[in-house]
């Protein structure tokens, strides 16, 4: 039997489809809730990586907002504020990184795929400082 007939003889959707969709969405929602579980009170550390290698790492604390240029090849400018970090300028083609806006919680990431730069926030405390450094 050809695959074409295989598709034609199938139901449009079955109980298995519903179960599959349900399980996938439940697992995703649990993951999202788990990721957003805020470790409030901790200071935030922003880690900038290029090609997966850490190129910059700085604490977001009481300093006044500052801008930082993270790459020589392309101009990518971050704005670091007390409560989060955002990409305000990028040479890349799609501007997804700029459109992501400001990230404010540990675990959130800004990714610029064309330039291969990522910015991730970590909670800075004794427990996961090592995680923060090794990424």
């Amino acid at each position: 039997m050809s695959l074409s007939d295989n598709i034609r003889n199938r139901k449009k959707f079955t109980a298995f489809d519903v179960a599959l969709a349900f399980v996938l969405i439940c697992v995703s929602v649990i993951l999202i809730v788990f990721q957003n579980a805020n470790t409030s009170g901790d200071r935030l550390r922003a880690v900038v990586k290029k090609n997966g290698v850490i190129v910059q790492s700085f604490l977001l604390d009481d300093t006044s907002p500052f801008e930082i240029c993270v790459d020589d090849e392309y101009s990518v400018v971050l704005l670091a504020e007390k409560d989060g970090v955002s990409v305000i300028l990028s040479d890349c083609t799609d501007k997804i990184c700029v459109n992501t806006g400001k990230i404010t919680k540990p675990g959130q990431t800004i990714v610029c795929l064309p330039v291969r730069i990522s910015v991730e926030l970590f909670a800075e405390n004794e427990q996961n400082r090592l995680d923060g450094v090794t990424g």
Binding site: L24, I25, V27, S28, V29, L31, I32, Q35, K49, N51, G52, G107, Q108, T109, V111, L113, R116, S118, E120, G135
Partner: peptide, 17 residues
């Protein structure tokens, strides 16, 4: 994962939905 590193894991649940 190879290009950007394991920070992409935060993206997984949104992509699955």
């Amino acid at each position: 994962f190879f290009v950007i590193g394991n920070t992409v894991r935060y993206y997984v649940p949104y992509l699955i939905i």
